[in-house]
Design a protein around this nucleic acid. Structure first.
Length: 278
DNA sequence: ACTCGTGTTAGCTG
DNA sequence: TCAGCTAACACGAG
């Protein structure tokens, strides 16, 4: 289930395979995934255009779209198409010859054939291919002109000074702050556990307790965890993830991993190295 | 039958 | 108004 690295994989898939193909049909009938748009609204806004670029900030993607008639040079551009994969979303791009490429939610985990009923939003291209948001739980979202101002800087681009300022204000638990997309965009529940484990910081530590050296250690952990996850195409391969189970032990010191709820989310941490607040 | 969840967000409280 | 918390959303998996 997608966090920043998986979303980047999906964005790259769109950029490689879906741009420049004329949209001739849109299935926007799922009113929950496409809220607050009404059925047909996305179809009317997108039919006749092409996707011209694919961008990402944190876990939000958006595609620029062309004008309706660019035959005499670029006309007025169309709306941006916002795409969020939610908890279980995956981007599927189908070539004219039927070849299927997928990115986002790792397909191996549920090992089920793609059910057409779980295609929640589909663009049909003039070449006979398609692009779809495949999403079992329907927590993904399609929206025109997404509000990017609601997001903080992307986790891969935030600077150390920005990070210190954004992370330490207030008194909330540090894990909850890492998950706050309006402060730093892209960190999900698994990455947050991995980052805190690498930095040896207890997830429930109030951010007001973090000294500068703690914030800097957290920043270095963020960078290294993101680099590793991106290189491997996803967060699910990180060290501490395998230890996220009853009876799991810390891959570094061997102590028992503890489970609890922090910031309303399921959380695992090392009972020895992440026991006390700084 | 029942609980949980790799995400977001409306609505409440102080 | 802001920071922080909780429930709700939807539905498959264990």
């Amino acid at each position: 289930m997608p966090e920043l690295p998986e979303v980047e994989t999906a964005r790259h898939l769109i950029a490689d395979l879906a741009l420049g193909r004329r949209i001739v049909g849109v299935d926007d009938a799922d009113t929950f995934v496409c809220r607050p748009h009404s059925p047909g609204e996305l179809r009317d806004a997108l039919t006749g255009r092409t996707l011209t670029a694919a961008h990402r900030r944190g876990k939000t993607m958006w595609c620029e779209t062309s004008g309706l008639d660019d035959s005499a040079g670029p006309g007025p551009r169309g709306p941006d198409l916002g795409i969020h994969l939610g908890m279980s979303g995956r981007i599927v791009v189908i070539a004219p010859d039927g070849w299927v490429a997928e990115g986002g939610d790792p397909p191996g985990r549920d090992a089920q054939p793609r059910k057409a009923a779980w295609d929640r939003f589909t663009l049909e291209f003039a070449d006979g291919g398609r692009m779809a948001l495949f999403d079992k739980r329907r927590l993904g979202r399609i929206v025109l002109n997404p509000d990017l101002d609601a997001l903080g800087p992307d986790a891969e681009e935030v600077t150390p000074a920005q990070f210190r300022a954004l992370i330490t204000k207030g008194t909330i638990a540090v894990k909850a702050r890492l998950l706050d997309q309006s402060k730093i965009a892209g960190i999900g529940n698994l990455l947050a556990d991995e980052i805190l484990w690498q930095a040896k910081i207890a997830p429930a530590t109030p951010v007001s307790r973090l000294q500068r050296k703690d914030a800097d250690r957290l920043y270095r952990a963020l960078r290294s965890v993101l680099a590793a996850a991106t290189a491997q195409g996803g967060a699910h391969t990180d060290d501490v993830i395998a230890a996220r189970r009853p009876g799991g032990s810390c891959p570094r010191c061997g102590a028992e991993m503890v489970h609890g709820t922090v910031g309303g989310r399921s959380t695992w941490w090392c009972s020895r190295e992440q026991a006390a607040w700084p």
